[in-house]
Design a binder for these strands. Structure first.
Length: 356
DNA sequence: AAAACGGGGCC
DNA sequence: GGCCCAGTTTT
């Protein structure tokens, strides 16, 4: 591949971008904080899904200091429903890192930026280029799709050697352009033109140099390694209510899905049939209560298939002391202020339909 | 190098 | 039901 072709290619994409870029809020700023927020939210997330979250986030936390000062619970609540919750935890930690290690000023070099929690190679390059016009190529899903097709790369993209080749191409392309513009242009082009489904090859401004198009490989690239099977998990939630409108909740702290989100006292089983309610375990032996089970709820995660069921257990007296010590006692009316996994929030939606 | 980590949208 | 999406961290 000649240097001329890299230049020709990048010129064509930049020209296309200049008249076809979508108007997105984070394209109106070079504030590294705002760029950072948008990049984290958009990791593994479509713009359609992330846009409202971005607007709410920067409204509530307009700068590093505000985010660093916020209780983590509040940040998690704002993130509720978006998924990959480590992003929120890491952002909160990184904000405090910026306060303590950089006097509250967002770092302005790639090597300092990439040291922040939750920022890897892609996001560091994005912030460094968008905010400071530094010459670091972004290589995200869009760019990988374009590069593998355009240059006809058939190797499995996760391999280190393939990654190196992709970065080499990306670097040669960015070298001919303004990094802050180019990095957005190449991603936008990959997303709008060289899309996963139904790419617009016929109208593509650089289709005569595309290896995949010439060799009829467009729908075969990029090549990814095969994925693992989903694991089944069965969650049985106990919604234990006392005689004064309180309920017991719990925070997920273990290394598992939904860390830092709330839940009800949980019994996890390996099968649906395995579940039994043991009153002794909850010190409810000899206490009057009734149990009201919900329907089954299902939620699909990338590597897991969750089946959940809720049991409302109404007591005719206060909670036993041992339960109050083990869990968090909150008024039922306050549950919406906590952050919940999707499947529990869905259950709340059904309750509202039933009750109101 | 592989596995884990969410949720929504598309076909 | 499988794959994708402005990836990073942990194992």
């Amino acid at each position: 591949m000649s240097a001329d072709l890299y230049q020709l290619t990048s010129n064509a994409i930049t020209a296309w971008y200049n008249s076809n870029a979508r108007d997105l809020p984070w394209r109106h700023t070079t504030d590294p904080y705002l760029i950072w927020v948008s990049e984290i939210i958009l990791q593994q997330t479509t713009i359609a899904q992330g846009l409202d979250y971005y607007n709410r986030f920067v409204e509530k936390y307009p700068n590093v200091q505000k985010l660093a000062d916020a209780p983590l619970d509040d940040v998690m609540k704002l993130w509720q429903g978006l998924g990959y919750y480590s992003r929120a935890r890491n952002m909160h930690a990184a904000a405090q890192q910026i306060i303590s290690e950089h006097n509250g000023v967002f770092p302005d070099t790639y090597n300092d930026i990439i040291k922040l929690k939750g920022i890897g190679k892609y996001t560091a390059a994005a912030i460094a280029s968008f905010s400071y016009n530094l010459n670091y190529p972004v290589v995200d899903g869009n760019v990988i799709r374009f590069l593998t097709r355009y240059f006809g790369i058939r190797d499995i993209i996760e391999l280190a050697t393939t990654q190196k080749a992709l970065y080499n191409h990306a670097q040669k392309l960015i070298d001919h352009q303004t990094p802050s513009i180019w990095n957005q242009a190449i991603m936008e082009f990959g997303s709008q033109y060289c899309s996963y489904k139904k790419p617009l090859c016929q109208n593509c401004p650089i289709n005569k140099n595309c290896v995949a198009l010439a060799q009829n490989l467009v729908d075969k690239l990029p090549v990814k390694k095969t994925k693992k099977k989903k694991k089944n998990r069965y969650f049985f939630y106990l919604i234990i209510k006392d005689n004064s409108g309180h309920v017991l909740i719990d925070k997920r702290r273990q290394k598992d899905i939904w860390q830092e989100l709330y839940q009800f006292p949980l019994i996890e089983c390996n099968t649906l049939e395995e579940y039994t309610f043991d009153p002794e375990r909850y010190a409810l032996e000899g206490i009057a209560y009734d149990i009201n089970p919900s329907r089954l709820y299902k939620q699909t995660l990338t590597h897991q298939l969750i089946t959940a069921q809720f049991f409302v257990i109404s007591l005719d007296k206060p909670f036993p002391k041992s339960l109050e010590e083990k869990y968090i006692k909150v008024p039922w009316g306050a549950i919406k202020t906590y952050s919940w996994p999707k499947v529990i929030d869905l259950y709340f939606s059904d309750l509202s339909i039933t009750l109101f």
